[in-house]
Each structure stands twice: as structure tokens, then as C-alpha cells.
């Protein structure tokens, strides 16, 4: 053995422990970065895949399943602007009261809604589908186009973008609704892809 030469040494116990802690920390950071990136990238590309899989909580539970599947109501009964204007529109409490002045006494949500109605206030629903301010999406034109093309009722068109809302526990976003999504569909349907169609 040459004096002064490199002598392999057995790591001491403390050194091993430190290394182990460092390894765990690095692994943690790595997993953290992966998680964050997964969340960020997937949010960018579409809806988040890790969190928010369910739709947001609403101030009053509105079971689409009961109303649409069981009672067979049309989407357009409540979203009554969808065939006329840009926004599909969410009804004022007054519309709920056409039935719920008589039915649903036992439900907590109904009591809440009736109180709001009597005070002349509105239900502040949490918005699920949202496009940015600089995008002007018009429901009416899309419904008109698809119902003519496919020869179907207006309300059957809704699922194209919104999915099977009737089976959703809480309403959630079904498509990415990013610009790429819009443009792809516009191209497939020979719809205009001029920027000024949506951006002004």
C-alpha cells in the first residue's frame, strides 16, 4: 500500500444516514416536480387529471340525473337561450318554482332555493364551463349547425361538447375546450377558422 494513496474507507453509519436522507429528499423533490408538471401540463392540455376530477360543489345540489333521466326534461327547458343566443343561460329561481312551489318539500336544497326566491335573490351557481374573455363562443350557431346537419333535436347536440350530463353526479367539463379543440372541430366541419370568428 503506498502511503498517501487513496484509501477506500467504509462509510460510517452517520454518513450513510445522511446520504439516505438526501436520497429521500431528492426523490421527494423529483416526485413533487413530476406531480406539479403533470398537473400543470395536463391543465394546459385539458382538464386536470389528478385533481378536480369531479365537478365543483354547487351552492344547491342540482341532480341532472333526476331531472333529465328520470323526469325526461329537455336541456332547453332550463337552458332556454341555447337556441337563440350566445349564452345557454342558467335559469332564474323563478323557473325552478314552476314545479318546486309544490314538490320537493322534504329537500334541504329546495328550502334554500325557495328562500332565495322569496328574497328576490339569485342562486350563485359555480361556473363549470368557461372560455376566456377574448373568446366569443355562441351556443346558438353551434346548435343550429349540428341539429341541421345531423337532423337531430337541439338537445341532442349538447352532448357533443358537454358529454352525458344526465349521468353526471356533479357537472364536470368533458372536453378540453382549448383552442386546438375548437379549431379541430371547425376544420372537420368546414366551419370558418378566421380568427375574427371568435376573437374580437
Amino acid at each position: 500500500m503506498i502511503p498517501g494513496d487513496f484509501q477506500p474507507q467504509k462509510p460510517t453509519g452517520t454518513q450513510l444516514a445522511k446520504l439516505g436522507v438526501l436520497g429521500v429528499v431528492l426523490l421527494g423533490v423529483f416526485i413533487g416536480i413530476v406531480l406539479v408538471l403533470t398537473f400543470v401540463i395536463s391543465s394546459w392540455l385539458g382538464r386536470p387529471v389528478i385533481f378536480g376530477h369531479d365537478g365543483p360543489d354547487q351552492p344547491i345540489e342540482f341532480p341532472h340525473e333526476t331531472h333529465v333521466k328520470e323526469l325526461g326534461m329537455d336541456c332547453t327547458f332550463c337552458h332556454r337561450n341555447v337556441e337563440k343566443e350566445a349564452a345557454a343561460s342558467v335559469p332564474a329561481a323563478g323557473l325552478c318554482m314552476t314545479c318546486h312551489s309544490a314538490v320537493g318539500d322534504e329537500l334541504e336544497g329546495i328550502t334554500k332555493m325557495r328562500n332565495l326566491y322569496e328574497d328576490g335573490r339569485s342562486i350563485h351557481w359555480v361556473r363549470v364551463h368557461r372560455v376566456p374573455d377574448h373568446v366569443h363562443f355562441v351556443h346558438e350557431a353551434h346548435i343550429r349547425y349540428f341539429s341541421e346537419k345531423e337532423g337531430i333535436e337541439a338537445q341532442e347536440v349538447c352532448a357533443t361538447c358537454h358529454g352525458d350530463v344526465a349521468s353526471m353526479d356533479k357537472v364536470q367539463q368533458n372536453r378540453s375546450l382549448k383552442m386546438g379543440d375548437c379549431v379541430n372541430c371547425h376544420k372537420q366541419n368546414n366551419a370558418p377558422t378566421d380568427c375574427a370568428t371568435c376573437h374580437y
Binding site: 376566456p132 377574448h134 373568446v135 378566421d194 380568427c195 375574427a196 376573437h199
Partner: peptide, 15 residues
């Protein structure tokens, strides 16, 4: 900013 097929010079704010 670009020219569209309706003769207008369009300004796309988000771009």
C-alpha cells in the same frame, strides 16, 4: 394582425 377574407384587417388580442 392579419387580413381576413371579408376585407378586414383584424387585430387578435390574445396573440
Amino acid at each position: 394582425t392579419y387580413h381576413n377574407n371579408e376585407g378586414m384587417n383584424v387585430q387578435v388580442y390574445n396573440r
